[in-house]
Design a protein around this nucleic acid. Structure first.
Lengths: 372, 372
DNA sequence: CCCACTTTCGCAACGCTGTTGCCAAAGTGC
DNA sequence: GCACTTTGGCAACAGCGTTGCGAAAGTGGG
């Protein structure tokens, strides 16, 4: 809850904060909905305050009443729900060989999707802008005017999330310093947000409720993505952790074998090098063990609650990887005599469209207060 | 800015948030002080709001006017300063062979200190409580009634910061589950906060202004402590990151040599084992290189801004360790072509009393909003 | 069927927040 | 000495969540 300028908070910021909080709870309640009193309990606000806030949201068309619960001896609670059509966002995943784009509604449900094969490896940055615009525009066209909140773009490699500028994106060396966000925004004339693909995927998973315990609100997890490379998206306290230079989650080039085999990055003994080498020679168990060692380091450093695995390589043999990583984490927990047992490991849901859907959430974060 | 219960914010929370923010800026300004208008700029609040807030703080005795700046062509700005005597806190560092305790004022300045050799290795938890009380009570006695805000206790190893309960503290296996916070609070009758020693040290450094750039507010850094063990305290966005189980910062048992030499923790190839082995055989360069490899992994994962080194082993040869770690980080930055150059490495200030002083900051965090 | 009771939730008055408009205070500089 | 700039307090204000209260909408016992 902060004024954008600095930490100071005024009444406008207060209202926006509480409204945002209520919207996030409404989204979390999904189709089932949530009553005013439950919102009051969950937010710590008084029921009357919640009534006023939800009245405003209903006026703005963001929320609506939807039936009522069974009575418990008195007037039954009225159920409130998010109005899915009140807002839409486009999410675009830019990859070396393809572009995926989705249109989602306020609840995050995918309403439409498009996919195109491209070859951006050798193309200039303008070609990438073209590709984004080509896929995003038809999707945006299906939305009534004013209801499109923006476009989120996710792509691999170093970039500046805040300014929306690229830095030596993996596989696209000629993009250094390219202001992708502003370029796309100028073409589409809507707000644009740019982020790393792993961050987008992690945000999508966080919104989908991963890492949220039954009691506590948003918790912390790591999403490890293993495909042509190895990267991570970190969610800490329900928000994506990017670091000052959007460089956080550089998981693949974590050294776990001092003076080990040379990696493409120039260092020696990186998880990525060891893991991919094992995959290449068909030894998935070893790949999983190596991945587990890296995950174990991460779990120890950040004390996170959950590890999610994704990416094409994992998808090809999810059980092997989940089992292998879990074994390492369980061994760690046994050594430490950890209180609640080992940190759980699961395959990430979301599939091939997970990154694009997460990219759309970069935009929706402005509504629900999960900028990350 | 949140209601403690949940995310919901009311006017009380708003006021407290802004007051806390202003107090933090007053503290940051130190002896030099800060004007109302400057506070307004830094917080984003209107000058009038700052006037009202500072008026309240002056009524409560927390702030006072202290001279005025030079005129720039109009009425000169009145300088405001924190009143150091308005509040005090005691910080206690509990270690295997000694107890250090300090009394600090609101600004964090150490007003008095005590130190005693003890042997807690074989003693029960009650003996530890006795030791804390024995050192803390005389310090607390020197403060006028009501001005003592509480006692912070820092000690090594796993514990639950939120509930103040110990878990198999390193070197004190018989302390499992002991409610240290409540035990000490019952004896001293003031609020008590318990945390890991590395977290306390990191908090102390954060408050002292480490990791704060000229422009941006609080940033992120890691404090690496190398003594009889190797641990870390993480400050992310100005706040100490503890994780759900106060387990974050488990830096020493990060594996950087798969299937390497056996560590005391039972795993193989931990940074701690490799680093301490190198120290034992007098090869400080290698120890520093190993430490640097671990630090490099951490920097990559979290994208932090600064690495601070501390602890007895580092203090014995600070230049060797700083140089060695910096070399590894610089090599990393060169490989990545990092935007702003390598992450800087510095020896941590604070010295032998740093942990105790940081422990006191655990209490002062309640006033200045840096709970961590 | 009626009536007491429970529970939800809106209306109205309220206290308190930061904001705005205005003006006194306190300097500089021609 | 007077015009000007800058600071900062006073007073009126809009808007936030809170409190007090009552209408609405159910259940359940007689």
């Amino acid at each position: 809850m902060v004024n954008r300028t600095n930490g100071g908070a005024n009444l406008l910021a207060l209202r926006s904060h509480n409204a945002t909080l209520v919207l996030d709870l409404l989204r979390g309640a999904g189709e089932e909905g949530i009553s005013r009193l439950e919102l009051a309990e969950r937010t710590g606000l008084t029921p009357q305050a919640v009534s006023k806030i939800t009245a405003r949201l209903r006026e703005e068309g963001l929320a609506a009443e939807a039936g009522r619960r069974a009575s418990t001896g008195g007037k039954p609670r009225t159920v409130l729900r998010l109005v899915p059509e009140a807002g839409h966002a486009v999410g675009v995943q830019l990859d070396r060989d393809e572009v995926r784009a989705v249109l989602v509604d306020l609840t995050g449900r995918i309403v439409a999707e498009r996919r195109a094969g491209v070859d951006l490896g050798s193309a200039g940055a303008d070609a990438a802008v073209d590709a984004v615009v080509r896929e995003a525009r038809p999707l945006a066209g299906g939305v009534r005017a004013g209801a499109l909140l923006g476009v989120g773009v996710a792509l691999p490699g170093p970039l500046d999330h805040v300014r929306g500028v690229l830095h030596r994106v993996t596989g696209f060396p000629q993009w250094e310093g390219f202001p992708l966000r502003d370029a796309v925004a100028a073409r589409l004339d809507v707000p644009v947000v740019v982020d790393k693909d792993t961050n987008a995927a992690a945000l999508g998973l966080a919104v989908a409720g991963e890492g949220e315990g039954p009691e506590e609100a948003a918790r912390s997890f790591a999403y490890l993505h293993l495909a042509t490379g190895l990267g991570a998206g970190l969610v800490i306290g329900g928000a994506v952790h990017r670091g000052a230079r959007t460089g956080a989650g550089e998981f693949g080039h974590q050294v776990i074998q001092l003076d080990g085999p040379r990696c493409t990055c120039g260092d020696r003994g990186c998880v990525e090098a060891l893991c991919l080498a094992a995959v290449a020679r068909g030894d998935l168990e070893e790949a999983a063990r190596v991945l587990g060692a890296g995950a174990s380091n991460l779990v120890g450093l950040l004390d996170i609650d959950l590890v999610l695995l994704g990416g094409r390589t994992v998808a090809a043999a999810p059980d092997v990887f989940v089992r292998g990583v879990a074994d390492v984490l369980e061994a760690r927990a046994r050594r430490e005599g950890a209180v609640g047992g080992a940190v759980p490991v699961r395959p990430a849901r979301g599939g091939a469209w997970g990154v694009a859907a997460g990219a759309a959430q970069l935009v929706l974060g402005g509504v629900f207060g999960r900028h990350g």
